[in-house]
């Protein structure tokens, strides 16, 4: 954690709204005003909010697909290796690579690894577990898990200017605006 010094410690300006529609509109306007380092904090996911904030779609699906393919091939390989290469057993003259028997375990390996990839990728990219985040310094932020919706324009944004950004946020008619520090 950096030591707070005047001017550099500001994390961003945070506006609080009552309704999902209000924050959706405010997010759209912020994007159109050219802000890039913006994020919204809401008690439940709001459809279209990520697009309104100009966010790219997540790559999670592709990562899971690749992990699943590797896990499926790996699961099959394990059984093929055990039965054909490592310890071949001739049972009634049946083929060593009796692949129909290997399908269930191949499938289970695929599901296991891809599900955990999805879960762990989501947590990892979201920075969980995380002990500290400056957004929690926002007054009344406990309500972000209850019934309030928060929009943050971060100070690192190129267009960020304390006075101008504040008056821009005021024009979106929030409940409150607060300066949040690191």
């Amino acid at each position: 954690m950096t030591i707070a010094t005047a001017g550099t410690s500001l994390y961003g300006l945070v506006a609080e709204y009552n309704e999902p529609e209000e924050i959706l509109e405010a997010a759209n306007r912020s994007r159109k005003a050219g802000y890039k380092a913006i994020d919204a904090y809401t008690p439940f996911p709001i459809e279209g909010l990520d697009e309104a904030l100009g966010m790219e779609p997540t790559r999670l699906g592709w990562v899971v697909l690749i992990a699943g393919i590797i896990a499926g091939l790996g699961g099959f390989f394990m059984q093929w290796f055990a039965n054909v290469e490592f310890y071949p057993l001739n049972i009634g003259g049946r083929p060593l690579n009796s692949w129909p028997n290997f399908i269930v375990i191949t499938f289970e390996c695929t599901v296991l690894i891809s599900a955990f990839t999805a879960g762990l990728f989501m947590m990892g990219r979201n920075g969980l577990p995380r002990a500290y985040h400056p957004i929690f310094n926002t007054p009344n932020f406990e309500s972000a898990t209850r019934d309030r919706f928060f929009l943050c324009i971060e100070a690192r944004d190129e267009r960020f200017d304390l006075g101008a950004t504040r008056s821009f946020l005021e024009s979106t008619r929030p409940n409150a605006i607060s300066e949040v520090e690191h």
């Binding site: 809401t42 709001i46 909010l49 904030l53 966010m55 979201n126």
Partner: peptide, 15 residues
């Protein structure tokens, strides 16, 4: 340490 940010929700919902 969940904070409910829009990006977090996006990944969360997909996962």
């Amino acid at each position: 340490g969940w904070n409910g940010s829009a990006k977090a929700w996006q990944r969360y919902q997909r996962a």
